[in-house]
């Protein structure tokens, strides 16, 4: 079952793309495939200041992964801890996973003619470390947590924000 989650604190993210570069270092990727991606949205004016958001988009490691269902060779695999990953020896480069994924996560590795995607840096996880994007993030905007920890943090943040407007 899926145990992992990368929680992005949008308020801390500065859209610097360090996560993408740390990711490329871990996976020895050159230009082209992007296991994670920062997408800038905005700016839109809020309270008189134009605000932009930078959304961090890795793989979501779905419980019922479209990419796995679509893969005809069994190259798209899932570990017990829920990490969905590409077994490169089995990948024939058919790109069915790229077609199937609703969020555009699987990437094409032109150099090797294989699909490639975020595997939450499973080799690092297995050594007790965190994914490279989380470890290297310039402003500590990314956190490697259990999904419910992320929900809890978000609720607490929301509670603080609404309480600030209470008329005690």
């Amino acid at each position: 079952m899926s145990e992992h989650y990368i929680d992005q604190d949008l308020k801390r993210c500065i859209g610097c793309h360090a996560c993408e570069i740390h990711c490329k270092n871990e996976h020895d990727l050159g230009p082209g495939p992007q296991h994670c991606l920062i997408v800038k949205v905005g700016p839109k004016v809020r309270d008189g200041v134009p605000r932009a958001q930078f959304l961090f988009l890795p793989c979501f490691h779905c419980e019922q992964a479209w990419c796995m269902a679509a893969c005809p060779t069994g190259a798209m695999k899932k570990r017990e801890d829920g990490i969905v990953w590409v077994d490169r020896d089995l990948c024939v480069g058919c790109k069915a996973c790229i077609t199937a994924c609703p969020w555009g996560v699987p990437q094409w590795d032109e150099e090797n003619g294989k699909a490639t995607k975020c595997d939450y840096c499973k080799d690092r996880i297995d050594r007790g470390l965190e994914p490279a994007c989380v470890t290297g993030c310039t402003t500590k905007a990314l956190r490697w947590v259990k999904p419910n920890e992320a929900s809890k943090r978000k609720r607490e943040q929301f509670a603080k924000e609404i309480a600030e407007n209470f008329n005690y």
């Binding site: 793309h17 270092n25 470890t135 290297g136």
Partner: peptide, 25 residues
């Protein structure tokens, strides 16, 4: 070079900006 990180002994974390990380490239 496999990775370039911030020096945790000095800054308390491995965080490093994209240029620093791209030192490997």
């Amino acid at each position: 070079v496999k990775h370039i990180w911030g020096n945790p002994h000095v800054t308390g974390g491995y965080n490093l900006c994209p240029r620093g990380a791209a030192g490997r490239a």
